[in-house]
Amino acid sequence: MILTSANLVFIVTLTIMPFLLIGVIKKIKACFQNRVGPPVFQSLYNLVKLFNKDEILSKDCSWIFRSGPLISFSGMLLLCLSVPWLPLQPPVPGCDIFLFVYVLALIRFFSIISSIDAGSPFSSFAASREATLSFLAEPAFVLALVALGISAHSSDLALIFGQPIENNRIPLSVWFFSGLALFLSGIVELSRMPIDDPSTHLELTMVHEAMVIENSGPNLALVEWSYALKLLLFFGLIAQCFVYSLSKIIALPPLLLPLSVLVVMLALGCLTAMIESFSVKLSWGKNPDFIAYAVSMSLLSSLAAFAMNGGS
């Protein structure tokens, strides 16, 4: 890893952007409720506070419970450093679509078994919910990335994303539908409304929040931090999809590309906050119907990828 200016931009945004995104979402939600809302960087302050707290452990839990958050945090950090979520080459090169998907699956596996290990009924059924939801949403997510890969003739994420506009051969429709599919499956993966309400206090309806209900102190801090990194990673990829499809219509100056991706990420945060303020959490039985839309978008994207590939 060489400290180039691109890498520096990567690392600086990596430290600030996740907390900014969470803060912006919370602030906008508060605005819709006529509240002032927490300071934008409150989640960062919370992190510091949590790292300074003691940890309470159930007497029944084993090393798996304690290592789960550590594994998910290190996995997320690895992905954030090797996936081009800004349209720049990442500091650690050579991340493949499948490596990306499998590292995410590994993280999910460990967070699921660590929450089952805690032995609380809430975290156990939440783990089962998480497994069900990600099982349903993963095809959409993978297919959307594969469609991009087909159009780019490569499975290397660095050759799909993070390329200068003139090198980019992926057609508009593939970018757009993949972006939509990633956004819809991102809602599921990031446990946002209408699948999961991150601000509820009702344990019985939770997915992500109930999974980490037994974590406390530094352990919880790692969970929160890796969630923030996951948000950044997903929003970065989605934002790039939309920025690249926009660049097919309007000519964007290449220098503005990283900036416009950041702006689109914030806009996605606003959109998420709007959805969260005005939509209703779906009944558990209706979740597959919602995920079906994500699958449809990725199917359309791969159809477009095949059709355009055959044509050219």
Binding site: P288, D289, A292, Y293, S296, L299, L300, L303, A307
Partner: peptide, 17 residues
């Protein structure tokens, strides 16, 4: 089921192509 209808209609979209 309604979600499946959507997926079938995507296949029909491919067919119509």
């Amino acid at each position: 089921p309604i979600p499946l209808t959507m997926h079938v209609s995507i296949l029909l979209f491919a067919l119509s192509h």
